[in-house]
Design a protein around this nucleic acid. Sequence first.
DNA 1: TTGACATGCAACCATTTGGTTGCCTATAAA
DNA 2: TTTATAGGCAACCAAATGGTTGCATGTCAA
Lengths: 113, 113
Amino acid sequence: MVPYKDMDDDAVFRALADASRRQMLDRLHARNGQTLGELCQGLAMTRQAVAKHVAILEEANLVSSERQGREKLHFINPVPINAIAQRWISKFERQHLNALADLKETLEGKGRN
Amino acid sequence: MVPYKDMDDDAVFRALADASRRQMLDRLHARNGQTLGELCQGLAMTRQAVAKHVAILEEANLVSSERQGREKLHFINPVPINAIAQRWISKFERQHLNALADLKETLEGKGRN
DNA sequence: TTGACATGCAACCATTTGGTTGCCTATAAA
DNA sequence: TTTATAGGCAACCAAATGGTTGCATGTCAA
């Protein structure tokens, strides 16, 4: 509803704070549309614990899901991560920004030669 | 000691999970080298609570500090945030990467004209 | 229809987290 | 040498977090 505010950031940052949840995002990134059962594999915890993590990822809008028959498919949503990277992290990222600026300047300089 | 591993990521992500700590980083970004007392101003919590947050930021290597007389000056360290942005978030950031690649290609194309 | 499978829901538990208060130490200033 | 200021340390507390177990529900297949 409300456009991106700091509260949304908070949910995303907190969702990303747990290594198991980051691993789930990794695995969804490797193969999108996995079921809850598939996400459970390789994680040393019960299915219910995984379901809770997934719920937190969904609340942060990092994962969306779709019920298909008796299965629930999960899809990663890169938008909130993008938003954080662009609006928050890039503030602290002088090196990257400067490197990009330098690259642009260098190449534009070449263009004018 | 050990180069950047996932355990380091974990400390950084968890340090970033708290809104008060992100605010402290914001404020250090706005003006570097603040004392503990200065960092306390405007935060609705005791100095001791702020000191704990600072300790967490220091353990995550996001902030370094230097004792100067009876004051302790705090400095933001952008390296871990850079590292996360580049190694972890950019994986999910197709748009940004593509935009950067496009820019590079465009400008290099100009250079060859 | 009956059984197996995928998921949901709720109660419960231990540990971590974010905060407090109280007191101590060190340095600067009067 | 007092006194005020900046910070450190430790005990304590409530709430959030990450996990469990037990059971219920919905759907596919034999």
